[in-house]
């Protein structure tokens, strides 16, 4: 258990759900009739003989943030990585069931993963900028997908993406310097800029703040809140406050099973399952 989680648990124990309620009030609730972007139905994932996910069915709403929470090893990251087929790169990983992006089956053999990943971008746990310049980091996606027809257009995309990621003001004078020279938080925002430069429909974030300090975390969370106006975001997080702060819907995973999914407010204040109740109040995890 990390230090962060310990304090979190302590806080939860002290004032029970009042704490969560405060967090929830910070982000304004959205309308309930949300368009669905991704539909997952009865997803089973196996690593070799070991089954990691059991019959998971979730709908990811459009232009909103959905948070996947749960204790370590519960399968939330595995599920996230199914959505853009990053699991394909893992030897011995097998996915069963149905995942549809805008009605199209993601695991259809006819689907090109390259195209899929251009539509479903990803931000990883550890900031992983390319060992190239800041400019090239952001320009790489548009370049390989041929999104810019000339240099000016490419520069425009890079600047817009960096602005959207809230990084432009900090790096505008050193776009030619290596991206690896930035601070951890800046690197992660660079990775977000890199992801949104391709203009994906969905952005997957796998614990994007777990390697960052609280100030950098706050900036990323703010950014996620802004991004949801244009993108559909699915975020895996270990921090329940973070889930409460940034998401509109929350899915709780436990031991490879999707225990409960619903509006974030409901999950944190009135969960229907005992396990969810125990987890969000810090009794385990």
């Amino acid at each position: 258990m990390t230090h962060n989680q310990e304090t979190e648990t302590a806080a939860m124990n002290m004032s029970s759900s009042q704490f969560v309620q405060d967090q929830l009030n910070a982000s304004e609730p959205r309308s309930n009739e949300m368009k669905t972007r991704v539909i997952a139905k009865d997803v089973n994932v196996f690593y070799g003989a070991k089954q990691a996910l059991f019959d998971v069915s979730v709908n990811v709403p459009d232009k909103a943030v959905i948070a996947f929470i749960g204790p370590s090893g519960c399968g939330k990251s595995t599920f996230l990585r199914c959505l853009n087929r990053m699991n394909d790169t893992i030897e011995g990983c097998r996915v069963e069931g149905e995942i549809r992006l805008d009605g199209q089956d993601v695991y259809d053999p006819k689907i090109d993963v390259v195209e899929l990943r251009a539509r479903v971008g990803m931000v990883f746990q550890k900031p992983n900028p390319f060992p190239k310049s800041i400019f090239e980091n952001v320009a790489y996606g548009p370049k390989i997908h041929g999104l810019a027809s000339n240099k000016t257009e490419l520069e425009e995309i890079v600047v817009t993406s960096l602005k959207k990621a809230g990084l432009f003001e900090e790096v505008k004078d050193r776009l030619r310097e290596p991206g690896t020279g930035l601070s951890g938080g800046q690197q992660q925002r660079l990775c977000i800029a890199r992801a949104i430069a391709v203009s994906p429909e969905v952005i997957l974030m796998d614990e994007p703040c777990s390697a960052l300090d609280p100030i950098a975390t706050a900036k990323i969370e703010e950014l996620i809140d802004e991004l949801r106006a244009n993108f559909t975001i699915a975020i895996v997080t270990h921090s329940m406050q973070q889930a409460a702060r940034v998401s509109q819907r929350t899915a709780f995973f436990h031991l490879g099973v999707l225990v409960e999914e619903g509006p974030t407010e409901q999950i944190f204040t009135a969960p229907s399952d005992k396990r969810t109740q125990d987890y969000v109040t810090g009794r385990f995890g």
Partner: peptide, 19 residues
């Protein structure tokens, strides 16, 4: 993580390796 970064952006396997 470097390979994942490139693959996650939609680079093909060959592009990931050579770029």
């Amino acid at each position: 993580s470097l390979r994942q970064a490139a693959l996650g952006l939609g680079a093909s396997k060959t592009q990931t390796v050579f770029h």
